[in-house]
């Protein structure tokens, strides 16, 4: 690594803990150093270093042919990324906020996701960017977008909850031959409690593999992203009453590691799904039907969910706090389920 590398990509090298944001920067930097086919596209990612400074210093190191400041046209540059991927490059597209991915919905679902199936070959590209509420961003800077794409065969969706996973999963996503939507909760980007020292060696975390964030026996809480932390807080509160919750962090939503969910469910008999995304059409519904299909006999109670309410993300702090699922909501639902 060059001596003039930006600070946010050198912390692991010097043994210091990193945030989720720094872990993502490190993953991008190291993959660009490792593979010259990897390049970045996005709005203000070059000279400005990105809205959240994930790519600060990248332009100096890799130059304008690999760190491309695009016009403000998400559909256009995502389509261009598809063409570059056709020709063997491995583009990583940054959405300044993932809310802005909607103009690229057409090319992502109709063109990119179908490429392999219709004989046009693999499509190794990553679309990444910040998601999630809690920052008073209002309706257009706070959404979770996973379920807009979850229904589309051919895509993968990744949503990490901590620095170690963020780095290993992003590296896997970049090396994957399929299109990956990579969601980064902006509430975790610089969260102090999320800092951790990462392995100094190159590592990847396979896509499609959940992890057990906390072991327990009384109920299973399946969740991802920022809600992993809310669920762990809830589990700590439940533990004071002797309720031992198991928390499963999905990490990858598509493909969904239903084996891990079923294994945990078979151990606890109770399933609570927690997601920050809105309720109707949320991933909880898909998980519920899959467990109905493969583990119905192990259920000792109804499958419950704690989610955001079905509305746009409100701007006011008071309203947003009410809109988002909180620790208290998880605790309440868990108590009900355990007592069922």
């Amino acid at each position: 690594m060059p001596n003039d590398a930006p600070a946010q990509v050198t912390r692991t090298r010097s043994g210091r803990p990193v945030t989720v944001l720094e872990a993502i920067s490190e993953a991008l930097w190291e993959e660009m150093e490792r593979d010259e086919r990897v390049f970045l596209m996005g709005e203000d990612i070059g000279a400005y270093g990105g809205a959240f400074k994930v790519t600060r210093g990248f332009l100096d190191r890799f130059g304008p042919s690999r760190v491309i400041d695009t016009p403000i046209s998400e559909g256009g540059f995502t389509g261009a990324a598809a063409g570059a991927a056709h020709m063997g490059l491995r583009p990583v597209v940054e959405m300044q906020f993932m809310d802005f991915i909607s103009p690229a919905y057409d090319v992502l679902t109709n063109y990119i996701a179908t490429s392999l199936y219709r004989g046009a070959g693999p499509m190794p590209l990553v679309v990444r960017g910040p998601v999630g509420g809690g920052n008073r961003g209002g309706p257009f800077h706070s959404q979770n977008v996973e379920m807009a794409f979850f229904h589309t065969p051919g895509l993968k969706i990744v949503y990490p909850s901590n620095p170690r996973d963020a780095k290993g999963l992003l590296k896997s996503s970049i090396r994957d031959d399929n299109p990956v939507i990579f969601e980064e909760h902006k509430g975790l980007y610089r969260a102090p409690h999320c800092r951790e020292v990462l392995p100094s060696e190159d590592y990847v975390i396979p896509l499609g593999s959940a992890r057990t964030a906390l072991e327990g026996e009384d109920l299973t809480i399946v969740t991802y992203g920022l809600m992993v932390h809310r669920s762990l807080e809830a589990a700590a509160e439940l533990a004071r009453d002797g309720i031992r919750a198991e928390v499963v962090d999905l990490r990858t939503l598509l493909p969904l590691d239903e084996e891990a969910i079923a294994d945990s469910l078979k151990k606890t008999g109770k399933l609570l799904i927690v997601h920050e995304d809105t309720r109707t059409g949320g991933i909880a519904g898909e998980i519920a039907i899959r467990m109905n299909e493969r583990a119905f006999e192990w259920l000792d109670g109804p499958i419950l969910r704690v989610t955001a309410i079905d509305s746009p993300v409100p701007f006011s702090g008071e309203l947003e706090d009410y809109f988002l699922p909180g620790v208290g909501d998880v605790v309440t639902a868990a108590r009900y389920l355990v007592g069922y």
């Binding site: 389509g79 990324a81 598809a82 063409g83 570059a84 991927a85 056709h86 490059l89 090319v107 063109y111």
Partner: peptide
Amino acid sequence: APRGGTATQVLAGAAFA
């Protein structure tokens, strides 16, 4: 894709490569 223009975007990206 169902709308014109996607091909121009995709081919622009290929040309970039």
